[in-house]
């Protein structure tokens, strides 16, 4: 019984040490584990022009302008927003009010020139009729309405 107990405690101690080590590693690598930066992150810690990074947030309502193959919109996190320009096809989920992640770099004027645009989904799942009736009843404002 004592040997079993000893093995149990050794194991628990080992897992504890491992957990702490993993937490420290993950914490120190936080910047590289973050897939994208929000406009607020950018306002806090500016990224120099010309350096590649990913910008994520919501496509601001009413900001999308299409000009041939060039598309312009603003990425917002409802506190700060950044203008984006992109040349190419956007994914099917790209909509005003929906999440978006743009890969690219800032130019000197603070315009984000995207080389790739990915759409983010939210975790709301419902049939279109339900979304519509919720919207009509004013209970819920899906920002991706178009």
């Amino acid at each position: 019984m004592t040997r079993k107990k000893r093995r149990l405690y050794t194991l628990l101690a080992g897992m504890g040490v491992l957990g702490v080590a993993a937490a420290l590693v993950l914490y120190s690598f936080e910047d590289s584990l973050v897939f994208f930066h929000s406009p607020s992150d950018l306002a806090e810690k500016p990224v120099p022009a010309g350096r590649s990074f990913r910008l994520g947030g919501l496509v601001e309502e009413g900001s999308v302008e299409k000009d041939g193959v060039i598309i312009r919109f603003r990425v917002t996190d409802l506190a700060e927003s950044v203008p984006v320009t992109y040349r190419g096809l956007v994914p099917d989920l790209f909509r005003e009010g929906q999440g978006v992640v743009a890969e690219g770099k800032l130019d000197e004027n603070g315009l984000f020139v995207a080389s790739n645009v990915l759409a983010k989904h939210d975790e709301n799942y419902m049939p279109p009729e339900v979304a519509e009736s919720l919207r009509d009843a004013g209970h819920w404002q899906p920002e991706g309405s178009n």
Partner: peptide, 25 residues
């Protein structure tokens, strides 16, 4: 929840409404 991921909105998406409707859940 810990990091910004593409997989699911953490802080950027607004979650005022239902998440999964019964017909899909």
């Amino acid at each position: 929840d810990w990091w910004n991921t593409l997989h699911q909105p953490a802080s950027v998406a607004t979650l005022d409404g239902p998440k999964i409707h019964g017909s899909i859940l």
